[in-house]
Design a protein around this nucleic acid. Structure first.
Lengths: 213, 213, 213, 213
DNA sequence: GATGAATGAGGTTTCATTCAT
DNA sequence: TATGAATGAAACCTCATTCAT
């Protein structure tokens, strides 16, 4: 594709690999779309059809439907996180970085049923993904805290939970009220700002301070 | 089969009715539990087993699995809404009423997979349910607005969306971090308070300010 | 079908069960035939077709293809062993009892691919079956030994192994040379008789008496 | 690809041939092992993997899985028979020759699932193989008969059948009771000896002397 | 009206064979 | 010519729904 393309010294073995790789990419792309549209319960055949390969090819690349789903989710998650990282690094203002992160996350994962399902079922595509996401959000949080912009007792877990929660909202309103989630995001961000001085409730509430039932 | 079969003057038809009603109730109760535990994708047989009736009986009362699911969701939703109404009426302070509403909603719908799924898929169990919920929340909003406690441009749709969004968070953390969602709720409520003066973004963004794609 | 058929006092519940039982029997019968003809690797659909039931019915009665196979084998084995027991008890002469046992076994299991496969793979349909068979053969052996008719160092394991071995021979010649296995049986029985006085080789041969490779 | 590719005066075509022959040998060797271990139902890929060639190469040499299986069986059978022949020729004592033949057969074909399967399914790898085996056994039989060591009415078919039968026994006990089949062999051989004077039953029993069923 | 067995389309996965490189 | 990815027809099994009793 680039000018530097080796015209002939490439061994034959390579060209086959390229074809397989193209198929693999097609499968992943199709699966990404289909899973996003219909969730993880779709018929595998739909993916095979959409990617233009036979069932056998699909199962050669991914030994199990679940493997395919996980691979797709991890890839989507990975590329999203990479993008998020880059944007955050490029943004001077800590609060802007945090805001931008949420914006991008919700824009990207909007309409992706499989991703939202994964949040509901496993708290994220994969434990590893969840961990990476946690680390990244922790950076954003630290930056905001150091700048005195974030409520001091907001934990990373709070922000992670907020992400998943908003993701759900985006999916819900995706088709009908496209822009509405931004309002919710603003509300949440305002609630996160250091202007709010009251401490957040203890995650493990004292039995005497909580109501009976 | 014998004459003694009808011990009371009640005609046979009526006793059938009572029996049928009891069955219907058993089915609904069992379905409520099972759908809440496993989501809408459970095997119908599990419900028949748990309710102690045969498949035929179940399908006599509910012609479709989906009918059963909807009925159950509507009933659960109805009783929840009635309770919410009563509590709200009994609460003087508008803000307390709003807060209590969210608390109760999230406490009740926590761990109910079917309800959360319904928010994701259809924005609520039923259009009718969504409408009733909307109306009720509108009342709470109006009370808070009149008392000057709520951000003036918060719409009812915003609050409804927030409900669904938080519901998701509750389900996610239900088993592992039981109390954490209360922190998220506090953050959101703080963001809703009238202390926040900046206007919320327009739900239907102007074409010139939004990006092309 | 017979005159004694109860016209009505049979409760409804019973009749359903009877139908199901008839289906179950039909499945077992069909499976018995099909497995015997084609071995354990046949398509389950063939069994469903032959028994006149749908796939679901088949899988309601037997949760797994393997369950079905095992059930069929156990039943066939059980009825065969019961018959064998009865015959042996009815036979005075110990040697005749032993002979008759082999005759009946080989006659019955002739042409049954699944049974022979089970001997090859697991040494019998089931550990339990193998055990019962072992016990029964042990009785026969003891009777012959006590009468001084059997080579004294023949073990029950030897006889069991001989059974499986001959079974194979029967299957092989079943279609082409129907009666030939009887000659083999006679040869084996002659080899088992106490006329043969030389001791049998030790099952764990001494390293010095065995050849190098 | 370069001129140096042809170090010897042999034309390129010939080196191809050599390569192809090496591949064919590798396939046969691997297939022999794999079929012996797992039987004829193994995945063809396992053979390709073990032989280090691609699927295409495999199918160029053997147009069908069954062709490969048959070829392998014939070869194994051929080399086995050649060895058997040589040993028999080298053995003076006829009875020893017969005994040695069985010993060698059972030792060699022990643990070879494909061979045993072939006996069950087709009475041997191939009609041709069966024929050659038959001829060879016939020689052994004649020698023993001439020496007056063998029961006079033992046919070659009897001995062939006995071979297949014992083969099965060997496979069955191969892993668990390695030496036991030798006891069975001894019993059979004792039954074959001319000490046994009673005539063997007629292979095609007269309808009047045989029982009705 | 109740029962639960029966149905069969549809889902995931395997594997002998072909074909583009 | 060798390669191994691609193919797709089964194979096994599930489950919403119907129906005979």
């Amino acid at each position: 594709m680039t000018l530097a393309d080796q015209p002939s010294p490439t061994p034959a073995k390579r060209s086959r690999r390229a074809d397989a790789e193209r198929n693999r990419a097609a499968i992943i792309e199709a699966a990404g779309t289909v899973f996003a549209e219909h969730g993880g319960a779709v018929d595998v055949r739909e993916i095979a059809r959409r990617s233009g390969v036979g069932m056998g090819t699909l199962y050669r690349h991914f030994p199990t439907k679940d493997d395919l789903l996980l691979t797709v989710l991890e890839l989507q998650f990975g590329s999203w996180l990479a993008d998020a990282h880059q944007r955050a690094t490029a943004t001077e203002d800590p609060w802007q970085a945090l805001t931008g992160f949420f914006e991008q996350m919700l824009t990207t994962q909007s309409r992706n049923r499989a991703v939202v399902e994964s949040y509901t079922t496993n708290g994220g595509p994969t434990p590893a993904c969840a961990q990476r996401c946690h680390s990244f959000i922790d950076e954003l949080r630290t930056r905001c805290l150091d700048a005195g912009l974030l409520r001091p007792d907001v934990t990373t877990a709070d922000l992670v939970l907020l992400s998943g929660s908003l993701t759900q909202a985006v999916l819900t309103t995706g088709d009908t009220h496209p822009g509405q989630w931004r309002r919710l995001l603003r509300i949440s961000l305002d609630g996160l700002s250091s202007r709010n001085t009251e401490p957040l409730p203890d995650p493990t509430p004292h039995p005497d301070t909580s109501r009976k039932d």
